[in-house]
């Protein structure tokens, strides 16, 4: 795997704003279970995320890590236990779901930009239609975030005209335009050509430096080492081990974690 070669290690991280709150809980998952039909995909998940935490979730494919973060904005429904996001508990109540989704940004493996809209329209759509922000103001905000992800010149192109790395940066900017309190990343670099991984990781590192609460499902262990304050390892729908990155990588305790790390760090 790309470990230290991913480029994320290329520069020093500015940790000035990367503070983890001791009291402010961003996400609280308590005794949560989920089934796909008869298949028990998430088993007794307990996870408390404090404001400002940067958590990397790793694990073999099929371990339930994507499902876990998709439960946090209710793209997937859980059947047992509780999930409380920004103080709002997720239930079948659509109002609460919308409330949570407004404050939680999500970045997908396959970008999921809206191909029929320009980049700028992709960015302004939700602020205008969900938050009711005037178009001009939404566009100013959108350009600000496009500059932050370093592609303001692409504003009037369509997603199909951009490279994968650029599309993923647009997807991140699109989420940021809603000014979310929490960002979820579902394997954001897995569908990218190796040459484009770095530009996306760079944007994610910038975001971490600004103090964003982040949950990242990723195989970029270099990113985990550098940016995360906590690494969670999952297998068979359960949290197997979690620790700070230094201890996690240098001193894994569970046999399954050791095996996983030996497979991906070579």
């Amino acid at each position: 795997m790309s470990d230290m070669t991913s480029g994320a290690a290329a520069r020093a991280i500015n940790t000035a704003n990367m503070t983890v709150s001791q009291t402010d809980v961003a996400i609280d998952v308590i005794g949560m279970h989920k089934w796909y039909g008869d298949f028990h995909v998430l088993r007794d998940i307990d996870l408390r995320v404090m404001r400002g935490e940067r958590i990397v979730i790793a694990g073999p494919s099929g371990s339930g890590k994507s499902t876990l973060i998709r439960c946090i904005n209710r793209l997937e429904e859980h059947q047992q236990g509780r999930i409380i996001v920004n103080g709002t508990e997720l239930t079948a109540d659509l109002k609460r779901i919308d409330e949570v989704r407004r404050e939680v940004g999500m970045v997908f493996q396959h970008f999921n930009l809206f191909p029929h809209l320009t980049i700028l329209q992709n960015l302004t759509l939700a602020p205008i239609w969900v938050r009711g922000i005037p178009k001009a103001e939404a566009e100013t905000t959108a350009m600000h975030y496009l500059e932050r992800v370093k592609i303001p010149e692409q504003a009037n192109k369509f997603p199909g005209q951009l490279s994968g790395g650029q599309q993923q940066r647009v997807a991140i900017a699109r989420s940021l335009c809603m000014q979310p309190k929490i960002m979820l990343f579902d394997e954001p670099t897995s569908a990218l050509d190796p040459e484009m991984v770095k530009e996306v990781l760079e944007v994610m590192i910038n975001l971490a430096e600004d103090g964003m609460t982040m949950l990242c499902v990723t195989h970029e262990m270099g990113f985990a080492r550098q940016v995360a304050n906590r690494v969670i390892f999952m297998d068979q729908g359960q949290i197997i081990e979690q620790n700070d990155p230094d201890a996690f990588f240098s001193n894994p305790e569970h046999e399954r974690t050791k095996l996983f790390l030996s497979q991906i760090l070579h």
Binding site: N73, L75, D98, G105, M106, H110, V130, R174
Partner: peptide, 23 residues
């Protein structure tokens, strides 16, 4: 349409009718 389009629209907080009509 790929399922991701529905999911992206939902994750931005768009309601059913807005995500249908706009996306």
């Amino acid at each position: 349409l790929p399922r991701g389009q529905y999911e992206a629209a939902s994750s931005l907080g768009l309601s059913y009718w807005k995500s249908m009509g706009l996306i």
